[in-house]
């Protein structure tokens, strides 16, 4: 009575569905609170230090603090301080970090536990190796070109939900779960003064607090882009059956 027939498809197993939704919920909370935190200081730097008196790498035009901070004239700290200066900030900026930071770290705990569970089970069950990473010989220029072409023409290829995944699908999932998500955790931890004191290797790994913050932002941008594409693909290839598969497993 099996509906899957002879083509062996793997519906999402229980632990995949559970960790998927836990991570999804945590990521939603982290995106929401993260944007609120970003809006307080939408400037990015490279290295250990960066602030309003230093030149930013780039600024994100978001929120009421973008290009609005007012400072008194700069007063140099004195000879031998390499031009370092101070200035008084003349008005309090927009700041919702009281709840945003606490919510971010609450979400981060849930995210961390769910991600660890996912990566551990993914490794132990062979889920990662068998279904997410391209098989030997699968990743060829020809196959890649074919899959890209298939995604550029309508109707979109729409195999049933679950593995085996297409080549682009595998590469995207692998990039997100093995690189972008763990990078969020590591760059986030690097920004913590207590954690960086305990593991200064984090500062060396990323080249400083502000570099870690900038990479945290780039990684966030990659995950946000992924979410957009992920939701679009689901909408285009049968949202009802996809939702049923990731919720009920059938």
């Amino acid at each position: 009575m099996s509906t899957t027939g002879k083509t062996k498809r793997h519906s999402h197993s229980g632990w995949v569905r559970l960790t998927h939704w836990l991570i999804a919920l945590a990521v939603f909370v982290l995106l929401y609170s993260g944007v609120a935190i970003l809006m307080v200081h939408p400037r990015f730097y490279w290295g250990q230090a960066g602030n309003d008196l230093m030149r930013p790498l780039f600024e994100v035009p978001i929120g009421p603090n973008y290009h609005t901070q007012q400072f008194s004239a700069q007063i140099p700290f004195g000879a031998g301080q390499g031009g370092a200066a101070t200035a008084d900030r003349l008005a309090e900026p927009w700041n919702q970090n009281g709840w945003a930071r606490s919510l971010h770290f609450l979400g981060a705990w849930a995210f961390l536990f769910a991600l660890i569970a996912y990566l551990t089970l993914g490794t132990l069950t062979g889920h990662a190796r068998k279904r997410l990473l391209p098989k030997r010989g699968e990743l060829t220029r020809h196959a890649l070109r074919q899959d890209i072409k298939a995604h550029l023409t309508l109707p979109m290829p729409a195999p049933p939900p679950g593995a085996p995944y297409g080549l682009l699908q595998k590469l995207t999932y692998a990039l997100i779960v093995f690189i972008a998500l763990p990078l969020m955790v590591l760059t986030g931890l690097t920004m913590s003064p207590a954690i960086a004191a305990n593991w200064p290797v984090l500062l060396d790994l990323f080249g400083g607090t502000q570099t870690a913050r900038t990479l945290h932002f780039f990684s966030f941008a990659a995950i946000a882009l992924f979410l957009l594409v992920h939701l679009t693909m689901i909408a285009l290839t049968g949202p009802v059956r996809h939702l049923r598969a990731i919720i009920l497993g059938a």
Binding site: Q48, N51, D52, Q81, A84, T86, A87, P193, A197, N198
Partner: peptide
């Protein structure tokens, strides 16, 4: 655990907020 300490040459500007 101690936080990292820097060299004098690494001192930067610092706003008063």
């Amino acid at each position: 655990s101690l936080v990292r300490e820097y060299d004098r040459s690494e001192i930067t500007s610092m706003p008063a907020t």
